Amino acid sequence: KLLSSIEQACDICRLKKLKCSKEKPKCAKCLKNNWECRYSPKTKRSPLTRAHLTEVESRLERLE
């Protein structure tokens, strides 16, 4: 599967780190437990900047 097509777990399953069936409108866990089942939009991760990478590398060197 391509990364862009990976389905996201519902908010509660993601928060509780449960295996989500990803069914809509309610996944199996939410249906069974009568929880409100919501699927928040995916958040875009910002790409690493060179400055951040350099900072992490220098912190790693100090720890070694």
Rank of each mutant, 00 (worst) to 15 (best):
T49M: 06
K19Y: 02
R45G: 00
E7I: 11
S21L: 03
K24F: 15
E23V: 11
Q8S: 13
V56D: 08
K26G: 13
K32I: 09
R62K: 11
K29D: 05
R45C: 01
S58P: 04
E64M: 14
S4D: 13
K16F: 07
K44Q: 15
N33Y: 09
K17P: 02
K24T: 15
E7F: 13
R38V: 11
P25W: 02
S4G: 08
E61I: 10
K42F: 10
L31F: 15
K32R: 15
C37L: 02
K42S: 08
L2T: 11
R62N: 06
L15S: 11
W35Y: 14
Q8L: 11
S46L: 00
E55D: 13
I6K: 09
S4L: 13
L2N: 14
P47D: 09
I6Q: 14
P25E: 03
L15Q: 10
S4Y: 12
W35N: 12
L31E: 13
L3E: 15
Q8C: 04
T54K: 04
P25S: 10
C37Y: 09
Y39D: 01
T43S: 10
R38L: 15
K17I: 05
K32G: 09
N34C: 14
L60E: 01
E55C: 12
T54Y: 08
A9C: 03
R62Q: 13
L48S: 03
A9H: 06
S58W: 13
E36D: 15
K16P: 00
R14C: 03
R62E: 03
L53M: 15
S40A: 08
A9I: 09
L63F: 12
L18V: 03
V56C: 14
K17Y: 06
N33T: 08
R50A: 00
S40R: 06
A51V: 15
L3T: 11
R50C: 00
Q8Y: 12
C13I: 07
R59E: 01
N34W: 04
S4H: 12
C13Q: 00
P47H: 04
R59L: 06
L53P: 08
L18C: 11
S4P: 11
L48Y: 09
K44M: 11
K44H: 09
K22R: 10
L63Y: 08
T43A: 13
L53H: 00
Q8M: 10
P47R: 07
C10D: 00
I12V: 13
A51E: 04
K19V: 05
R45K: 07
C20G: 06
K1E: 03
P47W: 07
R38A: 14
A51F: 11
R38I: 15
E7L: 12
E36G: 11
L53W: 06
Q8N: 10
W35A: 15
C10K: 06
S21Q: 02
W35R: 14
K26C: 13
L31N: 14
L3M: 12
P47G: 05
L63P: 03
L60T: 02
T54I: 07
E7A: 09
I12F: 15
K19A: 07
K26L: 15
A51R: 11
L63I: 14
K29Y: 05
K42Y: 12
K19I: 05
S58Y: 14
C20D: 04
E57G: 00
L2A: 11
R45F: 00
L53E: 10
K19F: 03
A51G: 05
C10G: 00
S4M: 14
C37T: 02
L48R: 04
C37K: 01
R45D: 00
E36Y: 05
W35D: 09
E64K: 08
W35I: 15
L3W: 10
L60H: 05
K29R: 11
K24W: 15
S40V: 07
N33E: 09
I12P: 12
S21F: 02
C30T: 07
E57F: 08
R38H: 13
H52Y: 14
K44I: 15
K44A: 12
L48A: 01
A28E: 13
H52M: 05
E64G: 06
S4E: 13
L53V: 12
S5P: 10
K29H: 00
L15W: 11
R59D: 01
D11H: 06
K42A: 10
S58N: 13
S40Y: 07
R62L: 13
E23A: 13
I12H: 13
C37F: 06
L3S: 10
E7M: 11
C10E: 11
A28C: 10
K19N: 07
T43R: 08
T43Y: 00
E36H: 11
P41R: 03
E23M: 11
Y39M: 06
T49H: 07
K19G: 15
I12T: 11
E55Q: 11
R59H: 08
E36M: 10
R50V: 08
Q8P: 09
S21N: 04
L63N: 03
Q8I: 08
K17W: 06
W35S: 14
K26N: 15
S46V: 02
K29M: 05
L53F: 03
S5R: 11
L15N: 11
K32C: 08
S58H: 14
L2I: 13
K1W: 03
T49Y: 09
K22A: 03
S4V: 11
R62A: 14
K22G: 03
I12Q: 11
E64T: 15
Y39I: 02
E23W: 07
K1G: 15
R62H: 09
K24N: 15
E55F: 12
Y39T: 06
W35K: 13
